[in-house]
């Protein structure tokens, strides 16, 4: 197993109480896999990835886990300098907004060279040669000239390509992509996803794709984790999970995706109620106040993540109710 996270928690003490942004997550990623983490805003997806990267300052944050094992090493036990050697080298990340994620004062070439210079001990001329190759490989035209460009001279799509090139410069084992296509228009989205897919196939890089877009997750990932209020509520292979969700939240998410055959002028389907207040979670299942299938147990106990019975593939859900083949309220 490339990445094996058990019971990860990231809590932030605030004036109004403890924000339980990540509240006991288990996550496994095999070498070369493509894992999607989906959920609405505030479900803890980004905090989860930032925690794994060691980019959440602690203190103030309170981070704990049974383990965050990556390539045989527990990241939570690593020292700051060990983490620096892993970050950008074995474990890399791309961020949501390519317009602000690159330094406007430095050239593209300068910024892309950095990981190679610090992790691979290349000379600056070797790094330059490699960066130009990388720019070419992510489909940036005229890479020799573009090496000297500044980020503001790039379009949004090109900047995200440059970010991808920077992240994969050192050949990481795992790439965490946090909403990499959200800030881009649809045609560019497809190109960036295609680019990441080809890197995955050619380099064998595993990818964790964090997104709120079910369509993007479906097209890219082998396995999906659905997060709600800092917990995993369901996980399973993409196809089965989409075909027949076993958690009411997954089902609600999927049915809120607009369809081409919806009658025109109709209202969008939404999930009733409010996303949970992370400082004041309900006693039982965090989704219970919004859940159409809710039973009494749900309001008393937190449902554990358990294997879904009667499936040919490995699936887990955190729900007391069997909802397959059932309509809400039955």
């Amino acid at each position: 197993m490339l990445l094996d996270v058990k019971n990860l928690k990231t809590h932030f003490p605030t004036q109004t109480g403890l924000v339980r942004a990540v509240n006991g997550i288990d996550l496994q990623v095999r070498e070369g896999a493509a894992v999607g983490i989906v959920g609405e805003s505030g479900s803890g997806k980004s905090v989860l990835s930032m925690t794994m990267m060691g980019l959440v300052p602690s203190p103030p944050a309170i981070i704990s886990a049974d383990q965050v094992q990556f390539e045989g090493k527990d990241l939570l036990k690593a020292t700051a300098s060990e983490m620096r050697q892993i970050r950008g080298n074995r474990l890399a990340m791309i961020f949501q907004d390519p317009m602000t994620s690159l330094n406007p004062f430095l050239t593209i070439g300068d910024q892309l060279s950095e990981p190679l210079l610090i992790h691979k001990n290349l000379t600056s001329s070797q790094a330059k040669k490699r960066v130009i190759e990388l720019l070419a490989s992510v489909g940036i035209p005229d890479p020799v000239a573009r090496y000297r460009s500044y980020p503001h001279e790039f379009s949004g799509g090109m900047r995200q390509r440059a970010m991808v090139a920077m992240a994969v410069a050192c050949g990481p084992a795992l790439l965490i992509a946090d909403e990499p296509t959200t800030a881009l228009d649809v045609t560019i989205q497809a190109q960036i996803l295609e680019l990441m897919q080809s890197i995955r196939q050619n380099e064998g890089t595993a990818v964790i794709l964090i997104t709120h877009d079910m369509g993007v997750a479906a097209g890219f990932c082998d396995e999906i984790y659905v997060m709600y209020a800092g917990r995993v509520v369901e996980r399973g292979p993409t196809e089965r999970l989409f075909a027949e969700p076993t958690h009411p939240y997954t089902k609600a998410l999927l049915s809120s995706v607009p369809r081409l055959d919806d009658p025109p002028g109709g209202r969008f389907r939404t999930i009733p109620g409010q996303p949970p207040d992370l400082t004041n979670l309900p006693v039982g299942c965090a989704f219970s106040p919004r859940c159409p299938y809710v039973i009494d147990t749900c309001r008393k106990e937190v449902p554990p993540l358990t294997t879904v019975p009667g499936e040919s593939v490995a699936r887990e859900k955190a729900c007391f109710v069997e909802i397959r083949g059932k309509e809400a309220g039955q």
Binding site: R84, G88, T100, S101, N103, I118, M166
Partner: peptide, 26 residues
């Protein structure tokens, strides 16, 4: 507080390199 400082951290740069190269100029 800028996003590109987070990117610099994600690359594995040290605090000192980030301050001198990425932050001081701006």
């Amino acid at each position: 507080g800028e996003d590109f400082i987070r990117t610099a951290h994600a690359k594995g740069l040290s605090e000192r390199q980030i301050v001198i190269k990425h932050a001081l100029r701006g």
